Amino acid sequence: MMNPEVVSFTIPTESNKIVFVWNISAQKPEEEIYCSLLKVFSQFGALYSLKLLPNAGVCDPGYYAVIKYYCCRDASKAQEACDQKTLFQDTPLKVRVCNKQKGFQYKSLSLNSSKCQDLANHYLGFNGWSKKIIALQNISGLDEAEDEGEVQEKTKLRYLCLLEVGLPGHGIRSRGVGVAEEILVKHKDPAELLIKTGNLQKYAVQKALSDAFQKILLVIFENGKVAAEYVSPNDDTVDCLSEEELQGLIQVNDFTWTSYNPEGEEEEILTEFSFHEDTVNIKD
């Protein structure tokens, strides 16, 4: 019997959560193949990513796929159910869970707000969690010490968000902080300022939501039941204060500025893989 598996709101990097699929024929359009893979492999659990890539030039025309699950149990089930099956094409696919030849230590990277919500919806249900903005404030200029006689051509626009995520069925609440910053040229079109203000507010909320989810761990049992645990650093006072105290205690220097990133996506750690007939390994 398999033990419960812990899932955090971070990018999965463990090798036993990565599934490789190859021998994918090129008889169908790439978009159709991608949708077919997504339909098949999402049946086994929540997916972090699915990438469909063309074979190298020395190989026959076709594709291979790299799929990341949040649970190693789901990756194992996918291999067992799909290896040597035709599924959506005439020839059988080859499906393997990754086996590393040597260990790598990766820093855990937080999921962005969109993927945090997708993961929470999958395991907790759309009504199993909630979010509430406690404060969203313009804190531009609070830490700047400019010379009064100096004319500044640029200014910094900053927004801070305090947000709370609640899991009512588990008696958990977790608060997160998000700060977004962008440098603006003064005397620009007012419409540009409105657009950038809206983008920064949105990004600050997204960062706060992701930060709140980092303190939550999901425990997935083999029968499908889910438990949740709250884990927070000892020096985290955000969750200990009342909403009124939080709104009156915005210490700017306690927060790390995050420049606005319109893509809003994490960068994955790319690793070079080699494919073999009976197994899949990572190159040294």
Rank of each mutant, 00 (worst) to 15 (best):
T197P: 03
S114M: 14
K132C: 01
D239H: 14
Y70R: 05
E80G: 05
Q247Y: 04
V97A: 00
V179T: 09
G176T: 08
L167T: 05
G125A: 03
A26Y: 08
N223K: 07
Q137H: 04
E222Y: 11
N253P: 06
I18S: 04
F9P: 00
V280M: 07
V21P: 01
Q137N: 10
Q152D: 04
L136W: 11
A135I: 04
Y70I: 01
N3D: 14
S274C: 15
I269Y: 07
C71N: 12
K28Q: 12
A135P: 07
L37Q: 07
Y69D: 03
E30Y: 08
A191C: 10
D118G: 11
A120E: 08
E243W: 13
N16K: 00
Y34D: 00
D239L: 08
Q214G: 01
R73A: 10
F104M: 13
S242E: 02
V205D: 09
C71Q: 15
Y70E: 00
K85G: 01
L136F: 10
N281P: 08
K115F: 05
V7W: 02
L217A: 03
K102A: 12
E32T: 15
E144H: 05
Q201Y: 06
Q251R: 12
S76Y: 03
H170S: 01
G166A: 14
K131L: 05
L53W: 12
S108E: 09
W257K: 14
V205L: 11
L37C: 13
F221P: 04
E267I: 13
K156A: 00
F126M: 15
